[in-house]
């Protein structure tokens, strides 16, 4: 506590608090978040956790890659050919419908 005299009036100020490492740590934690807002969570991972995470990710890629390769067979070509098939089938159906109509019609006339 420091006393400042001004003639007869004394003002006793609240003394400067002792240095606090906790305070510094809290400020710096927030400062690092401000500096790297998107990668702040990375600081929470320990080195061994990093290794495990990387292994899991790698394994997932290896396991999923055949499925991804199969999926890639559904390319633009295959889409186009399947569309062409559909169009062909619809034309055939249309022809068949017309044929049956005429047949019915002609039978009707008979």
């Amino acid at each position: 506590m420091s006393n400042i005299s001004d003639d007869k009036t004394k003002i006793t100020f609240e003394a400067e608090p002792p240095a606090s490492e906790e305070f510094v740590a809290q400020v710096m934690s927030r400062v690092r978040q401000e500096a790297h807002p998107h990668s702040a969570w990375l600081e929470y991972l320990k080195p061994q956790e990093w290794i495990v995470s990387s292994l899991v990710f790698g394994l997932a890629v290896v396991l999923l890659s055949p499925m991804l390769t199969e999926d890639s067979s559904y390319s633009v070509d295959s889409l186009l050919s399947s569309q062409a098939d559909m169009e062909f089938h619809s034309l055939v159906d249309e022809d068949a419908a017309l044929e049956s109509f005429f047949l019915e019609d002609s039978f009707g006339e008979l």
Binding site: E14, E16, P18, A19, S20, F23, V24, V31
Partner: peptide, 16 residues
């Protein structure tokens, strides 16, 4: 991290 030097240097004064 160098910012911590400034925090350490002034934190008591500012808190006071």
């Amino acid at each position: 991290d160098s910012f911590s030097l400034l925090v350490r240097r002034y934190e008591s004064k500012i808190r006071g």
